[in-house]
Every structure is written in structure tokens, then in C-alpha cells.
């Protein structure tokens, strides 16, 4: 059991809306091992964000259970077990980049000297050294997104939850960030849950790909990625890569109901 980072068991979540209940998640069961890089892919509205938010205790499931690091999601949140990267960078406009990254460190009470060292380290990690005095609105969207990743990496959480972090970026920046993310994952041994709409991105990054389908939101396929851990960008042109991508696409098609 100790190597399971996140475990969902028959997880359900129904939103009560004005025009009836919405089954965002229905009987979802999934185990994520420590050190896994798991991608979630599926059509819009299939509950990817909701699933991630359940892991983060930002949403209360209406059925089933979920544990993070062997304890409830709430306890995990209280013990600051994960960093969360939202789809939009969500940096505080009144804080500089440096102070945005410092925010979780202040809240969690890291000593001052340690804070400075960490900020320097993570900003270097995401290629933003030298930008700590800038304000978010003075940076491009890609740089803001990297800053928000730095913010999630600044403190010692061994789980990283990322909700379409690269959705709004152009291909080139995206490729670059993908590469950096892989390198970072290899270096830090973190467990990563990653939501994306891009099949190549999912295949390129993950050890495990979870395909979801909507109405009600459920898992339609879990694909173990056979690609080697060492992945240069041009691995995406190999047949092995295309085979996995094909399987994911098939899974997505099966989940889509054109009614």
C-alpha cells in the first residue's frame, strides 16, 4: 500500500444545478502509484477538472472515497501534500513574480533564508531567473504559466496536480515546457497528475494515460505507456509513440457518443 499516492474508490460527484443533477463523476476508481506521471485526457466536460479538484479536496465527492498518501484528501491538504497548478496562472497581480513564488512559503512558515534560496532555485528551474522583480502583467502568458509552476514547486510537496497548465500556449513553448517538466519529474521523483487535451502531450509525458468519457464522467480506458523513461522530443516521430497515440485516440473515440 505504501507505494500508492492517490487512490480513488468508486468516486462519484453529482452537481445539483438548476436544470437537474449533473453527474460530473460516476463510480471512478483509480490507483496512482508514487512517482507515476499520470495524464488525464477526455472530451470537454467529462470531469477531469472535477477529479483533480477531488484529489485536492477543493470539491467534496458525493459518493465513494478518495485517499491521498494513505489519508483522506482533507488531511492531505492540511498537511500540504501537493502543489496545484491551475489552468490559468492565477498569479496575484499585486505581487512580483518573486513574491508570488514566496506566497506559499510565507503561508507555510518557511524560514526567510530558506525562502530566498528556494525562490532562486525554482525560478532557475523554469527559466525565469532575473524576472523576480517583474509583475505578472509584464510577462507573457507562457512566462506567467511557468511562474505558477515554480510557485507549485517551491515547497516540499511530493504530489503535483496540474490542470491543463499548457493549454493556452503555442506549440514551441509547449514543447519546451514539456521537456522541462519531464526533466523536473525525473529529478524530483514527484507524483504528477496532469490534465491535457493533447494526445501527443499525454503520450510524450506520462507513464500512465487515463482516458475519460462524459455524461456521466467515468474512466473508459487506462493505458500503461511502454515508452522508455528517457524521452527526447523526436521520440514523437517513432512508431512506438504513434502506436500508443493511436490507442489513446481509439479510447477517446469509443467514449464519444454522437447523440
Amino acid at each position: 500500500m505504501t507505494d500508492t499516492a492517490i487512490s480513488a474508490d468508486n468516486l462519484s460527484l453529482t452537481f445539483q444545478t438548476n436544470d437537474g443533477p449533473v453527474h460530473a463523476l460516476k463510480d471512478v476508481s483509480l490507483d496512482i502509484n508514487k512517482g507515476d506521471f499520470v495524464s488525464f485526457i477526455g472530451p470537454s466536460g467529462c470531469g477531469k477538472t472535477t477529479f483533480l479538484r477531488c484529489m485536492a479536496d477543493l470539491e467534496q465527492p458525493t459518493g465513494g472515497s478518495i485517499t491521498v498518501n494513505g489519508v483522506s484528501a482533507r488531511e492531505a491538504r492540511k498537511s500540504r501534500a501537493y502543489g496545484y497548478v491551475f489552468q490559468h496562472a492565477g498569479l496575484y497581480p499585486w505581487r512580483t513574480i518573486g513574491r508570488n513564488v514566496r506566497l506559499p512559503l510565507e503561508i507555510m512558515g518557511y524560514p526567510k533564508a530558506d525562502q530566498d534560496a528556494r525562490i532562486k532555485r525554482v525560478l532557475e528551474l523554469v527559466d525565469l531567473a532575473g524576472f523576480e522583480k517583474k509583475f505578472p502583467w509584464q510577462l507573457s502568458g507562457g512566462m506567467q504559466q511557468r511562474a505558477s509552476i515554480a510557485r507549485a514547486l517551491a515547497f516540499d510537496a511530493d504530489i503535483l496536480l496540474m490542470d491543463e497548465p499548457f493549454g493556452a500556449l503555442d506549440e514551441i513553448v509547449r514543447d519546451h515546457l514539456n521537456e522541462q517538466l519531464l526533466r523536473l519529474w525525473a529529478k524530483t521523483q514527484k507524483t504528477i497528475a496532469f490534465v491535457t487535451h493533447s494526445i501527443p502531450e499525454a503520450v510524450y509525458l506520462s507513464t500512465k494515460i487515463v482516458v475519460m468519457s462524459p455524461r456521466p464522467g467515468r474512466i473508459s480506458d487506462v493505458i500503461e505507456n511502454p515508452l522508455p523513461a528517457e524521452r527526447p522530443l523526436d521520440i514523437r516521430d517513432t512508431q512506438a509513440f504513434l502506436d500508443v497515440a493511436h490507442r489513446v485516440r481509439e479510447g477517446l473515440r469509443a467514449g464519444h457518443s454522437y447523440d
Partner: peptide, 12 residues
């Protein structure tokens, strides 16, 4: 902003 509040929640 709801997202900024959620961020604070993730930091407990």
C-alpha cells in the same frame, strides 16, 4: 477570484 481562493485552500 475563485481560483485565487482555491489556491489558498491548497496551501491549507
Amino acid at each position: 477570484d475563485a481560483m485565487m481562493r482555491d489556491l489558498m485552500r491548497t496551501y491549507a
